[in-house]
Nucleic acid binder design. Structure first.
Lengths: 365, 365
DNA sequence: TTACCTTGCGTTAACGTCCACGCAGCGCAA
DNA sequence: TTGCGCTGCGTGGACGTTAACGCAAGGTAA
C-alpha cells in the first residue's frame, strides 16, 4: 500500500504539501495539486487509518436521541441495546456515544425533547442518530444543528422524515409486516377455530403513527374474513386498566356476535390484551388467536405461555446497531451508507424466541 | 487513558521495560514486573490499538475453509457472502482473508480437502474459520496446524466438533428448528387440507449429517398426525432426476393412501420437490404443503411462487460474518468469543423474503 | 587476567499521518 | 527603503507502541 511519503516522492514534493492537498487546507499551487491528485489516483492511495487515528488521537463522538427506554412497553430498550452493543464494539476504535432520551408523549411544549436535544447540541459531535417521532421539534433541532455544524451526518432510525436533511434511514416496511400478520392470522383462525367466517379484532392506539397505520392497512388488505377495528385511545402511554375496560365494553356490546376468533395488536401492547384474555371470564376456554409486535419482556412471557401465537418484529436492536455502525464508518472511513435500509421482518414463536432475545433481556424473563 | 509512558513513569522504569513486561519477553526482574503489573491494574491501562497496529504494521490474516459454494443447492454461497462482507468491512483495519474450498462429497481419499487445507497451511495465518464436515480430515488438519502454530485461534461454523481444539462454534439448533417446522406444518395442514389425519412425507438425503437427523427428530416428536419418512439416498450431490424417480415410485406404490397433505424437506433441496410437484400429473390441483430449509436461489423462487409455504433458515450469512468478526476481535483485541453461539431461527414466507435476501442474491432472482 | 556470557535495564528509530511552524520569494503600500 | 502580508513550499515533532540495540554490572570459564 502506498504511503503519503511515496506519493510525495513521485510528485517531487514534500509530505506536508501532499497532506495539505489531500485535506485541501490551501498553501499549494493548482499545478502541484493536479499532479499529486493524479498520482494518488494512479497508485490507488488510501490513507492508513491506524496512523490517522493515532495522529489525531481520533475520537468519534456520536449523539443518540431516542424516546425513554421504558416507553411503549419498554420497546425503546431494544434499539438502545443494539446501540450500546455497537458502542462497546467500536470503543477500541475511538467511538464514544452521547445518549439522550425524551418523553415522546410529553407533547405540551415538548420540554423533554427540547432539553435532551439542547444537551446534545452543546456536545462536540461528529454524528447524530435519532428517532424523529416529534416532527416539528426534530426539524427545528436539525436546523439548529445545521447552523452549528454545517454538514454533520444524521441518520434516522425507526421512523423516517424523508424531507429532512438526513444521510439515511434505517427502519421497517410496516405495510408488508401487516400483510404477513394477515397471512399468519388466516392460517391460525382456519386451523384452530370452528368453521365459518372468523371475526377479527384489530387493536391499535389511536395515534397518527405511520407505522401503525401501515401495519393495519397491510393487514386489512390481505386478511380473508370479517374485520372489526377497535381503536384504543390513550392520551400518553398505555395502561392496563384502560385496555381492560375498553375490551370489556367492546365484548359486552357486541356479544351477540360472539367472541372474536383472533386479535391483531398493531403495536407492542399485545401483552395487555393477553393479560385481559387470561383474566377474563367473558371469553371461552377456546382462546382467540393473538398476533402482536415486538419482543418486549411482557410479550415474550405471553408468547412462551402460548397466549400470544406470533410476534412480529423488525429487529430494533439491529436498527440501532446498524445506525451507530453506519455513522462510525461514515465519519471514520468516509464510507457511504445506503439512503434507506430496511431490516428483515422476523416471525417469532415460542419455538424460536430464545435465539432472538439477547442474553441480557433473557435474564429478565 | 493511560499510556505506557505514564505506567513507566509511575513505576520508575522506562517504557522498554514496561513493554517487555506486558509481552513477557524477558529481561526484567520479578520485582519490577510485579510493581508494573499492579500499576497496570490500578490505572486500568489498555494498549492503544491504533498505535500497536501502526507499529507492527499489523496485519491479521484469517484462513477460511468451507465446501464449494455451489454444493448443496448453492447453500455455501450464503455463509461465503457473510464472510466476504466481514472481510470487506474489516479490511481498513488490516484484515485479509485466505478463502479455500473443498468438495464435501469427494470422499475417496478426500484429495480436495487435503489440497485446500495444505494450501492454507503454507500461508502465515493468525486465525482459522472452518466448516468441519469431514471429521477425520479436519482433525488431521488441525493436528498439523497445531504443530506449526501452537495456539492459532480456530472457530468452527455450521457444524461442531466439540472434542476438537477450537475456540468456539457458531451454528444452529437444528432440533429446535425441526420442532418449529412441525408447528408450522400442523397449522398448514389443518388450515388448508380436508379434515382428517394428514399424511406427511419427510424427505432427507440419507446422510449421517447431525443437523438433518436433529431436524427430523424435532419434527417427528412434535408433529401431530401420520408421518412417513422417505430417505432419498444420494451418493454425491443431489440431482433432479433421482428425486423425481423416487417421488414417482413413492407416490405410485402408496397411492392407495392418497397424496400426502404436506412435505417436509430437511435440507436445502426443497426446490427439487417443488419442481416435481408442479410438473407432476399424479398430484391433485390441491398441492401438498411444503416446508423446506435455506434461502438458496431456487428455493426463493418457489417460495415467491407459492409452491413452498415456509423456508426455515438459521442465518448462514450471519454465521460467516460473525465467525470472521469474532476471530478478528480475538486476534486484534484479544477479546474472548463465547464458546457456542447459536444464530436465530428465521421463518421465511413470500411476504418477508425480500428483506432477508441480500442485494446480490436478489439480483439473481 | 582476559574473554565472553547473562541479567536488567534504558534508548531510540521506526510505523504513517497530521499540523504547527519556519522560510524564502514576491508584491504592495507607507 | 522598510515593513507587512501573501503564496507555496519544506521541516520536524507528536500520537502510542514495538523491537532492535546498547550498555553497565556481575558471573563464569579458560
Amino acid at each position: 500500500m502506498a504511503t503519503i511519503k511515496e506519493i510525495a516522492d513521485k510528485a517531487g514534493v514534500s509530505i506536508g504539501t501532499v497532506d495539505r492537498i489531500i485535506h485541501n487546507r490551501g498553501r499549494y499551487s493548482a499545478q502541484t495539486a493536479a499532479r499529486v491528485q493524479s498520482i494518488i489516483r494512479e497508485t490507488g492511495y488510501r490513507p492508513n487509518l491506524m496512523a490517522r487515528n493515532l495522529s489525531t488521537s481520533g475520537s468519534c463522538r456520536i449523539g443518540v436521541l431516542l424516546p425513554l427506554p421504558e416507553q411503549d412497553s419498554g420497546y425503546w430498550s431494544l434499539p438502545l441495546g443494539g446501540i450500546q452493543r455497537a458502542g462497546g464494539e467500536l470503543e477500541p476504535f475511538g467511538l464514544s456515544l452521547e445518549i439522550r432520551h425524551y418523553n415522546r408523549y410529553h407533547s405540551a411544549g415538548n420540554n423533554s425533547f427540547a432539553a435532551a436535544s439542547s444537551e446534545l447540541l452543546s456536545e462536540k459531535l461528529d454524528g447524530l442518530l435519532i428517532t424523529p417521532l416529534l416532527e416539528p421539534s426534530t426539524l427545528e433541532f436539525l436546523d439548529r444543528v445545521k447552523a452549528g455544524i454545517p454538514d454533520l451526518p444524521v441518520i434516522f432510525f425507526d421512523t423516517d422524515l424523508p424531507k429532512a436533511p438526513r444521510l439515511s434511514y434505517i427502519g421497517q416496511d410496516s405495510y408488508q409486516s401487516g400483510r404477513l400478520a394477515a397471512r399468519l392470522m388466516n392460517m391460525l383462525v382456519t386451523a384452530e377455530q370452528p368453521p365459518g367466517v372468523p371475526r377479527i379484532l384489530i387493536i391499535t392506539p389511536d395515534s397518527d403513527n405511520e407505522h401503525l397505520k401501515n401495519r393495519i392497512c397491510g393487514f386489512t388488505e390481505h386478511f380473508i374474513g370479517e374485520l372489526e377495528v377497535l381503536k384504543v385511545t390513550v392520551e400518553s402511554d398505555h395502561n392496563l386498566g384502560i385496555f381492560h375496560k375498553l375490551l370489556d365494553s367492546e365484548l359486552q356490546e357486541k356479544s351477540q356476535k360472539g367472541p372474536p376468533g383472533g386479535i391483531f395488536v398493531a403495536d407492542a401492547s399485545a401483552h395487555f390484551v393477553a393479560d385481559y384474555i387470561v383474566s377474563s371470564d367473558s371469553l371461552p376456554a377456546d382462546r382467540p388467536s393473538l398476533i402482536g409486535y415486538d419482543l418486549v419482556p411482557e410479550n415474550c412471557k405471553w408468547l412462551k405461555d402460548g397466549v400470544i401465537d406470533f410476534l412480529l418484529t423488525q429487529r430494533p436492536a439491529e436498527q440501532g446497531y446498524n445506525g451507530v455502525n453506519r455513522l462510525f464508518r461514515k465519519i471514520f472511513l468516509d464510507e457511504d451508507a445506503p439512503e434507506i435500509e430496511y431490516t428483515p421482518i422476523d416471525i417469532v414463536t415460542k419455538e424460536n424466541l430464545d435465539y432472538l432475545v439477547d442474553r441480557k433481556a433473557r435474564e429478565v424473563l
